[in-house]
Design a protein around this nucleic acid. Structure first.
Lengths: 234, 234
DNA sequence: TTTAATTAATGACTGATGGTCATTTATTAC
DNA sequence: GTAATAAATGACCATCAGTCATTAATTAAA
């Protein structure tokens, strides 16, 4: 009897189709402005049907977001699986996050939007758990490289790898979040190009966690952020 | 004829009373969950009256937020006006921001919540401008100290003071935001105490922008973040 | 094939809420 | 004391997340 299996497949397909529709609408309008009626329309289903497949608007939002987490996870896994030195991989991790920001900004936006507990109301336990798991995998990638750096003696031994991961991630994240929302404000009011700031911040952070030996070895790499003229003048 | 003046005063007072009521409700429930009816009730006015004084819920939210910006501004001004060395003042700035976070968390929450352009919809030009101005003042404090540090030769000369301000601010901000929303998650899932992370992050950041000379001079200060045992062992 | 039973889908409806505006109330001017 | 003006009100509207009784489609049984 293959009927239950087929039904299960069809159900899963429906769930995917609904996510596709939801993604389209959420990307365009954001969680707030998107309406379930719009999503239903995009999915060519009635609103009631959406609720047969997802508990709430927020659950649906998280379902879309999970795709983004997976993409990011893959990009990080890619960056940390090369044969290059750990210091280079650390730089590549930062670059990868910025690439993700540029190529998948809608997902990035969802990430930081959903951090607010205000929107966790309608989220089911299940979905929250799944999301936490996926998220954890991404962290593991970052922590792993830092731990390796410590083991190899290129990252300062007195640093805690998890804490350090949080520090690196947070600083990158904070600046990209600003890039997303306040790029123009910072350019016009403060004369600052946030892309430049991100580059310099990543370099500063990296410098600050490396051992003296590693810094000397990769000096050329670290210098890329500082304008030659300025260094020369001072 | 003092009547117009008195009326103006009364009007201003009303505006303040409304902000008081709004603050109470926003602090309790956040922008989303707070309702204009609640605020009206708290202000002992009808909802319609609120709209005679403020254009939208968001405008009211910003009016409350401005108070927070002023408090933060004062705390920063305090931290940077002492007679202490610039390096110490830089540390104090970081400490002041964390103090603000602890003592005025509701305001802090409002700040980062409102960064999302999704909520800028109902905001009037006026209110947005005012907010931008106030915000600018806070940035000026941070930038000023960094500039002074460069002039005195304690902050690396190749750094741009505005960019550096953004970097320092953003990293502190990012970690405190996480403290507000994910303290438990990080403790339980990753075994990390974000307060510790903040302390270390601030130290790392400070280290990374100081000149070698300044680092040597204030070594004791910078060491406070690293556990003695660990440093000794390695 | 026909009928019963089960599963899937629907959309009218509810309750909540931001914002409006015609009407009422209070204040000021004459 | 009355007209004119300003302030305040709350019933009302439109929007929208979520529900549920009803309908349609599919599967199982006779």
């Amino acid at each position: 009897m293959g009927i239950p299996e087929r039904k299960e497949r069809e159900k899963e397909q429906r769930r995917e189709e609904i996510i596709n529709a939801a993604q389209k609408v959420f990307f365009e309008k954001g969680l707030q402005a998107a309406t379930m009626d719009e999503i239903a329309e995009a999915a060519e289903l009635s609103k009631g049907t959406l609720y047969l497949y997802y508990k709430s608007k927020e659950d649906l939002y998280l379902a879309v977001m999970m795709r983004g987490i997976e993409i990011l996870h893959n990009m990080f896994a890619e960056a940390t699986s090369s044969q290059e030195p750990t210091v280079v991989q650390l730089m590549k991790l930062g670059d990868a996050y910025y690439e993700f920001f540029k190529q998948h900004r809608n997902y990035f936006r969802m990430f930081y939007f959903f951090q607010h507990p205000q929107f966790h109301k309608g989220v089911s336990e299940d979905m929250m758990m799944n999301c936490g798991e996926e998220n954890q995998k991404v962290w593991k990638e970052v922590i792993g490289v830092i731990q390796r750096g410590i083991d190899e003696g290129v990252v300062r031994a007195e640093l805690n790898p998890v804490e350090t991961a949080v520090i690196l991630w947070s600083s990158s994240n904070a600046i990209m979040t600003r890039m997303d929302t306040q790029m123009e404000y910072f350019k016009e009011r403060m004369g600052v190009d946030l892309e430049e700031v991100l580059r310099k911040s990543n370099t500063l952070m990296l410098e600050s966690i490396l051992t003296e030996k590693a810094k000397r070895k990769h000096q050329a790499l670290l210098m890329r952020s500082w304008p030659v003229a300025k260094v020369a003048v001072n």
